[in-house]
Write a protein that binds this DNA or RNA. Sequence first.
DNA 1: GTATTATGCATTGTATAGCTATGTATAGAA
DNA 2: TTCTATACATAGCTATACAATGCATAATAC
Lengths: 110, 110
Amino acid sequence: MEFSKEILKGILETLILYVISQGPKHGYLVARTIGKMTDGKIEIQDGTLYPILHRLEKKGLITGSWVETGQTRKRKEYTLTQQGKEMLKEQAGQWQTLSEILTQVVEEVL
Amino acid sequence: MEFSKEILKGILETLILYVISQGPKHGYLVARTIGKMTDGKIEIQDGTLYPILHRLEKKGLITGSWVETGQTRKRKEYTLTQQGKEMLKEQAGQWQTLSEILTQVVEEVL
DNA sequence: GTATTATGCATTGTATAGCTATGTATAGAA
DNA sequence: TTCTATACATAGCTATACAATGCATAATAC
């Protein structure tokens, strides 16, 4: 993890919703996808990943179903629900505002 | 507070360092300055503000000194230290990266 | 032949950040 | 006279991300 521990709080949930919105994924694949799209800057740990997935499922934002692959062990594949889609849009709106604030500071400091 | 509770974790410390870097400020003024620069989107609560200031002082990133104003009650005015300046630059670098990730998602979702 | 890495899910305990509520204190406006 | 703004501070709560640990299998490296 390149980022400081605390900067990511509240960010990861939305990032996970986003990658699942681009197509159903099981947990392990979610983490690897985020790793790739951030050039390894965000490598979600197991102890972070699975609790978040359970949380999102409990909130009704994603639904999980066990899939037999025959090759590896069983995977739990998650899909975004309608509620999840709405939440993602709402969060993206907040990110837009947040991003503007961050950029303003970055431009003056760097 | 317009933002969801968790999205700000790890953001406020840096934002506070930033406004103090633009000129020494006492706590209350720090909060109001951030309120103005974010159009009221970030209104830091007392119970959040003062613990952060104490934390930053303990870390040596800012130094505080009591100032008698004669008008209102005593103010504790904070100034950024050299260490604070370095930390701010480091954090700004992380924000740049973070901002790029947020923007990428925002553009595809909205 | 054995050890390590990658895949894949899960839980327990810990540290920490921001919030609410509360307390102290004064000045000006309604 | 009551409410709002100024100004600082702390105790207790909740939630998030992390490290550590455990289970289980397949492929690759040595």
